[in-house]
Design a protein around this nucleic acid. Structure first.
Length: 816
RNA sequence: GCCCGGGUGGCGGAACCGGUAAACGCUGCGGACUUAAAAUCCGCUGGGAGCAAUCCCUUGAGGGUUCGAGUCCCUCCCCGGGCACCA
């Protein structure tokens, strides 16, 4: 009688063994090749969801596989512990954010341990602890001294009823989520980090990052958005200064028929003083939230200001409009409009009856009418005076030279990337270490007074940050002059914590420095895994912080993550699992019913990691069924007593076939996991081999040896995915020593050799037959054999053969 | 609106560099075992024609390149992610 598969008992045994031996705690071993395997750390939202289980399993499979490759593997875990949900819990349920967060962490840590992830828990990092955030406060003060941070006014969503700043997520259809009031844009002073100082480097280095997906690199390139253009001036008669605009198309300058300025632009504000219609327009433009998606999709509106600018080349008057699609905070707050050759300008001109002038003609000489269709391609200049006939490159150079020599313009490289606003008007975050003094201005908190500790005992009113009502927090003295001063009550964007945690895992207990020498051993991260939704912001901020730390002498490398894997979401009924949609599946229930291995296996089998994964309860049962079959196959085999070694020269044909399948499978799974991260096809290949073993009915010593080899290979190769059951089966197969320290199996090329191979025969590209040919047969022999197939003859007979194509080892195509 | 992905049987997916479309699994149907149920095992399972051999059709839609296209190019449709204060 064979013991049934009992996941609960097996998993407990394996877990206790790993924990008591501290299998996953690693130190720095300079002689050994290290592998730093990292997952984007979770926000402690309450309990694990399926998205967590998926990403952590992917990373754990890679970590365990790399360990079997002989590498010294670090896989740490921690908590991105600051954020809005903790404040919402405090408002809704009266639980202090700190308690709510620490309770969630304790519960989720237990769930992670139950999943059997190979984490070094001795390195756990929790970002809401002062011993962590003191170092980002420290780095901020260093950046302050270098001029890498500055303070300026910036736009926020303002809820006029609650009198508070709203996150974009808290604005629903232009209204505050609690008050339902129309949200306004409002400018308040905020701290910025100069990520633009690194724009060129962040862009250029992308070309030397083969371990990142092309799609992510393309998104980052487009986000940074480098453009080469010309900044030039349009004089405005009667005004103090000219209108300065930036354009990447100076070749279209003769096509300018109007200008547009932001509603907040001084020219618009001045006109509003005497014109009620303009004043109303300016007021209406404030009533929108601050997101780019809203801005780009809203109806384009504008009003003429009754002012003309002067065209810098023709001297003609050009009307100036105020428009809602020009923002004061981007560029100069003014644009030149070329409706003939810019799609947005064209639509606006059509709507308001503004003239459209063609100044570019297609290079191929074809005729166009810009009054019917906008023409945005580069071409040859027409209607452009002495610049007529020039192409884009020549016109760009000639016009840029003209303005530079006249002193009214200059070549300029622009970036779409904007500096990173890090101020948040919220409580549950790391305090920004600044003191405002009436005499000295903004003064960074000195190193010996860090950390600025966030008080964890607070009263929540639900509106605004409690820190603003806590004199004990904000009343202080100026570190420079000693006078009474006021502490900054804004906290950091939580992206600040997640921009450097990966380095802190190398030395989480470092009390005297942000990072110590251990970071040189572990960094950079060899494999980083996380959601594709972080492709831009988190990953770009981390690349920026890595460079700031490099320039502080804290780390050596410029890039923090050598290889990046972005995993897809977990969906149910075609939609992302979320509480709001009510389509969540609690992983804990499944772990309790089937065990962690079944959940891990389903996650890896159901879809490739980069793709969205459709949840299926039946699929989970299928994974459980496979583990039961796997368990039974090994138990039945070992019930027959010990098996001997394979004697490769003394096998019959079925034994050779099973052995070939075993070694083909080792080759395939090694490639699937090691190179492709195609865990789904790796599992499918393991299933095929177990199916072959189950059908293989041979109790002879040679047969048992071949079967033993196959089962041992599957146990080793599935162990990164389902480590608990494999640990038990490894011992069942009579092997001593911990499975996690076994080397990954090698395949024997000699076992793959085949005498004959089957080729597909096509006639005119359509499948017409199959032939078995000798493995070393030459082209003529292959064609001769292909033509001898009766079905192929039916399609070739009576026709002349025009061409034959032989793809070695695959197919023959006969073209008639 | 802009940027990045994706669309293949009833379902999840496979097909890696342009070379057998649908591996593996799920579901469903039929059968075995059982007093019965569960579990397990065996067989079939893209559509159509045919007794069969075999043939025709099929990878969101339409066009193109090629001996050959799910894969490459162009146009379009739909779904998802991101758009700087969700994390």
């Amino acid at each position: 009688m064979i013991a049934a598969y009992d996941p609960a008992a097996i998993e407990r045994t394996a877990r206790e063994q790993w924990e008591s031996a501290r299998c996953f705690e690693v130190d720095e071993a300079p002689g050994k090749e290290k592998f730093y395997c990292l997952t984007m750390f979770p926000y402690p939202s309450g309990k694990l969801h399926m998205g967590h289980v998926r990403v952590f399993t992917i990373s754990d499979v890679i970590a365990r596989y790399q360990r079997m490759q002989g590498r010294h593997v670090l896989q740490p875990m921690g908590w991105d512990a600051f954020g809005m949900p903790a404040e919402n819990a405090a408002i809704q349920r009266g639980i202090p954010p700190a308690k709510w967060t620490y309770d969630n962490i304790a519960y989720m840590r237990g769930q992670l341990q139950r999943m059997g992830y190979a984490y070094d828990w001795s390195r756990e990092v929790t970002t809401c602890r002062p011993e962590y955030y003191r170092w980002e406060q420290w780095l901020f003060t260093r950046m302050f001294r270098k001029g890498l941070v500055y303070r300026r006014n910036a736009v926020v969503n303002w809820d006029p009823v609650d009198q508070t700043v709203l996150a974009n997520e808290q604005v629903i259809d232009g209204r505050g989520w609690r008050s339902d009031a129309l949200v306004e844009r409002r400018e308040i002073p905020q701290w910025f980090m100069k990520i633009t100082a690194y724009a060129e480097e962040l862009l250029g280095e992308l070309d030397a990052m083969p371990g990142w997906p092309e799609s992510v690199k393309t998104m980052q390139r487009n986000w940074i958005g480098r453009s080469e253009g010309v900044e030039l001036e349009f004089p405005v008669p009667g005004e103090a200064g000219p209108l300065t605009v930036y354009t990447t198309r100076p070749d279209t300058l003769f096509g300018v028929t109007y200008m547009a300025v932001a509603a907040e632009h001084p020219l618009a504000l001045k006109a509003a003083e005497s014109d009620p219609a303009i004043a109303a327009f300016v007021a209406a433009c404030r009533l929108t939230d601050a997101t780019e998606a809203t801005f780009e999709t809203m109806e384009k509106k504008g009003l003429p200001l009754g002012i003309d600018a002067t065209h810098p080349l023709t001297g003609e008057p050009v009307p100036v409009w105020a428009a809602n699609f020009v923002l004061m905070s981007y560029g100069t707050g003014a644009i030149m409009a070329v409706p003939g050759h810019d799609a947005r300008d064209w639509e606006f001109a059509k709507k308001h009856g503004l003239p459209i002038r063609q100044v570019i003609a297609p290079a191929d000489g074809s005729r166009i009418d810009v009054n019917d269709t906008v023409y945005t391609e580069p071409g040859v200049l027409v209607n452009s005076g002495r610049f007529d006939g020039l192409d884009f490159t020549a016109a760009f150079a000639a016009l840029a030279d003209h303005f530079e020599s006249a002193g009214t313009g200059r070549r300029k490289i622009n970036y779409r990337l904007r500096d990173w606003g890090v101020s948040r008007q919220r409580y549950w975050g790391a305090p920004i270490p600044i003191v405002y003094c009436g005499e000295c201005g903004a003064v960074p908190v000195p190193e010996d007074q860090l950390p600025v500790v966030l008080p964890e005992e607070v009263e929540f009113t639900g509106v605004g940050s409690p820190l603003k009502d806590m004199p004990a927090f904000y009343e202080t003295t100026c570190p420079a002059c000693g006078r009474a001063a006021r502490r900054e009550t804004d906290t950091f964007d939580t992206f600040v914590e997640s921009s450097w945690y990966f380095a802190r895992y190398a030395c989480p207990d470092s009390h005297d420095a942000m990072l110590d020498d251990r970071v040189h051993y572990w960094m950079p991260v060899d494999q980083y895994t996380g959601g594709v939704e972080h492709a831009i912001l988190h990953l770009l901020y981390s690349r920026f912080f890595q460079r700031v730390m490099r320039d502080e002498g804290l780390v050596r490398e410029s890039e923090p993550f050598t290889n990046l894997l972005t995993q897809g979401m977990v969906l149910k009924d075609g939609a992302k699992m979320s509480k709001a949609k009510g389509n969540t599946v609690d992983p804990q229930e499944l772990i309790d019913r089937y065990g962690a291995d079944t959940v891990r296996l389903f996650m890896m089998f159901a879809a490739p990691p980069e793709q969205a994964l459709e949840w299926s309860d039946e699929g989970v049962q299928g994974s459980f069924r496979f583990l039961k079959r796997f368990w039974a196959a090994v138990q039945e085999h070992v019930a027959g007593g010990p098996a001997g070694r394979v004697e490769a020269g003394a096998l019959d044909e079925p034994q050779k076939q099973l052995r070939r399948k075993t070694h083909q499978t080792i080759e395939k799974i090694s490639d699937d996991i090691g190179r492709r991260h195609a865990f789904n096809t790796a599992v499918a290949a393991a299933m095929e081999l177990i199916n072959a073993v189950t059908r293989f009915d041979d109790a002879s010593p040679a047969g048992r040896a071949v079967r033993h080899e196959a089962l041992e290979a599957v146990v080793l190769m599935l162990s990164p995915i389902v480590p608990h059951i494999c640990d038990a089966l490894w011992r069942a197969l009579g092997r001593a020593g911990a499975l996690i320290d076994q080397p990954w199996p090698d395949f024997d090329p000699a076992a793959l050799a085949q005498d004959t191979i089957e080729l597909v025969v096509q006639v005119n590209g359509k499948l017409r037959g199959r032939v078995a040919v000798a493995a070393e047969a030459d082209k003529d022999t292959v064609i001769e054999q292909a033509l001898s197939d009766p079905n192929v003859q039916r399609f070739v007979a009576g026709k002349s053969i025009r061409k034959t194509i032989v793809v070695p080892g695959r197919l023959v195509n006969i073209v008639v």
